[in-house]
């Protein structure tokens, strides 16, 4: 046993991890969420807005991180739509545009058919240039955007009328998986124009620790990974979900199941590894 574990082929670990993720998915394990302060703060920020307030939804993630960020993007869209906010979607990642399309199709077109493109929401699409885009649009939106994502001139989009820069937005909502993302938004939009702009964000677990230093002055609320998404989802659904919540608004909470088992597995592995380590130490293999 000792020697087996000592020279454990990593494929065994891979198998265990596979099972740890697959089983909860198959059995649809789900646990209740207790929202913590940051998710609450995000919720409150959006709650504080009034119907008709303009909101910029910047979706800077890709299919790879869709698993982690998709649910919160969906919930954000749902929440904004429910609040009757004017939604301006944009992306700094090439595939972010698809993420926007996804959410528009999944949430707005499916559950809010009454919202009209160009009046209630607009998809500005992807622009290359990383944080350079932010730098420009924070003072001059039209310098970069002449059409929306579908090639329609923004002059002919009713809700774009009078929008010269994104400082006119009541709130920025950013969902990001890395660079360019929340950090850049904070640095180039929020920090120089802290009097004019507010922002909440959702990010992957890995970037979350990097964003904590911006809380709460530059970033009042933050959703960290699937856990944050689940908490926020819980908040939004408790408030607006009604009796029967659609499956697509439970994604985050559903994904907490595999996460639980996977985390337990990792803890178990670390403990086993350390038992081995101390056994070795006692044997004097390791000095």
């Amino acid at each position: 046993m000792y020697t087996f574990l000592k020279n454990l082929d990593r494929r065994w670990i891979f198998l265990l991890m596979f099972l740890a993720v697959a089983i909860p998915i198959l059995f649809e394990l789900q646990f209740p969420e207790h929202p913590t302060g940051l998710a609450q703060a995000v919720f409150d920020e959006i709650e504080a807005l009034q119907p008709g307030d303009p909101v910029l939804l910047a979706f800077d993630y890709d299919p790879a991180s869709e698993g982690e960020l998709g649910p919160m993007a969906t919930t954000f869209t749902y929440h904004c739509a429910k609040k009757g906010l004017k939604m301006y979607f944009m992306a700094l990642w090439p595939v972010g545009a698809q993420m926007i399309d996804d959410n528009i199709a999944k949430v707005i077109k499916a559950d809010f058919p009454e919202l009209e493109y160009g009046k209630d929401y607009v998809n500005l699409g992807y622009k290359s240039g990383y944080e350079g885009v932010i730098k420009v649009i924070v003072t001059n939106l039209r310098g970069l955007y002449t059409t929306d994502s579908y090639g329609t001139s923004i002059d002919s989009i009713p809700m774009m009328e009078g929008v010269t820069d994104i400082r006119q937005m009541k709130l920025l909502v950013n969902v990001s998986a890395g660079y360019p993302g929340t950090t850049e938004w904070v640095q180039y939009a929020i920090t120089p124009f802290s009097k004019d702009l507010r922002m909440v964000a959702g990010c992957t677990g890995i970037t979350a620790p990097l964003l904590y230093p911006y809380i709460p002055n530059q970033l009042p609320g933050l959703l960290g990974a699937i856990k944050g998404a689940a908490e926020y989802e819980q908040l939004v659904m408790d408030a607006y979900g009604g009796e029967k919540v659609d499956q697509k608004y439970m994604k985050a909470r559903q994904r907490m199941g595999p996460q639980l088992i996977a985390h337990l597995l990792i803890i178990g592995l670390i403990i086993v590894a350390n038992i081995l380590f101390f056994m070795e130490k006692r044997k004097g293999v390791v000095r």
Partner: peptide
């Protein structure tokens, strides 16, 4: 996820 598990198993030692 898989790599995190294997890296944790290998590198997380209370040294």
């Amino acid at each position: 996820a898989f790599y995190i598990a294997s890296a944790a198993f290998r590198a997380f030692r209370a040294k």
